[in-house]
């Protein structure tokens, strides 16, 4: 069970590290306790901590990962989903991929024998055994580069879905969460986001995801929870404000101001619907489509 590795079609290692390797301590000041860096799933009475756990549980259930042998988390961040898989859901082995060195080191330092983490892109991943479930939360945003045509983006995304298809056991699920363009087009987005926050990155449109997974996965559920991301960004911004002095000491005034602005622009995007938050459960098609053979008449 290995695969030929291809060049990562999305944001480069350098671009990812520009964003994620700012400093663990800095992110700890404003993310939840487990350092989950993606939209939470909010219900009445939730705090950021409980809403993040609710989101992780949602994806574990969506991917039917409970009690299985091996689960892959593509873009595992600081490992909050990996931890939950082995601690609460009886998963024997949780494997994470990330392009951020500080994140992978952080997970390795916790020395959980059931958790493995690789500093590599999905496009370089070459597992020795298949997986029973795959989860990917807040990483798909990075799987295409700015200024690619829609066809190029779809080709890269399809490559991703082909890998997942190849690595999954029959009948298994992929649970995916990603930001996408909503009532907007890429050109509406400010230079600020593109240059200063997520260099080298372009978001998907729902139609591109649908086209890219066609005949490989069937979409079982799809939700747009953009209000959840707006609320998450508001919670992060409030935390950052509360810990502003400590944050400035760690990374400097300019970086803090840049993150404040990025969170505010994101709040506007999700509030207005220019950005959406997609959550999808995808079931592997065990017999991918083959064209009907017409008999020669």
């Amino acid at each position: 069970m290995s695969s030929v590795t291809i060049q990562n079609p999305g944001a480069s290692l350098e671009a990812i590290q520009h964003h994620y390797d700012v400093s663990n301590e800095f992110y700890k000041l404003w993310l939840d306790r487990a350092c989950t860096y993606s939209s939470a799933l909010w219900e009445e009475g939730d705090t950021l901590d409980t809403a993040q756990l609710r989101k992780i549980d949602f994806h574990i259930e969506n991917s039917r990962a409970k009690g299985v042998d091996r689960v892959l988390d593509i873009g595992c961040g600081w490992g909050s989903t990996l931890d939950r898989l082995v601690d609460k859901y009886d998963v024997r082995q949780a494997i994470g991929l990330s392009l951020s060195e500080t994140q992978t080191q952080w997970i390795r330092d916790r020395k959980n024998p059931q958790i493995q983490v690789h500093l590599e892109s999905w496009s370089e991943h070459s597992p020795t055994e298949p997986y029973d479930a795959i989860i990917s939360i807040g990483a798909f945003e990075h799987f295409a580069k700015l200024h690619q045509t829609s066809q190029q983006k779809i080709a890269g995304y399809r490559e991703f879905f082909q890998r997942c298809h190849q690595w999954l056991n029959p009948g298994s699920y992929l649970s995916l969460q990603t930001i996408a363009y909503g009532n907007s087009k890429p050109e509406d987005f400010s230079e600020f986001m593109a240059n200063e926050i997520f260099p080298d990155t372009d978001l998907p449109r729902l139609s591109e995801i649908v086209e890219a997974c066609e005949h490989l996965f069937e979409i079982v559920t799809l939700r747009n929870d953009r209000a959840c991301y707006e609320r998450t960004c508001r919670a992060w911004l409030a935390n950052l404000k509360q810990n502003r002095e400590a944050a400035v000491r760690l990374v400097g005034e300019e970086t803090v101001a840049r993150y404040e602005k990025y969170l505010q622009v994101s709040i506007v995007g999700f509030y207005s619907g220019k950005l959406v938050l997609l959550r999808m459960a995808l079931r592997r098609l065990d017999r991918p489509y083959r064209p009907l053979k017409r008999r020669q008449g």
Binding site: D188, F189, S190, K261, Q264, V265, I267, K274
Partner: peptide
């Protein structure tokens, strides 16, 4: 005015008015 410029405007306006303005105001 894109969303980033709108956020900057809202921030500057809030500072001048000396009141907290929500970044989504211009939506």
């Amino acid at each position: 005015l894109d969303s980033s410029a709108a956020v900057t405007l809202t921030g500057d306006l809030g500072e001048w008015l000396d009141r907290e303005l929500d970044p989504t105001l211009l939506v």
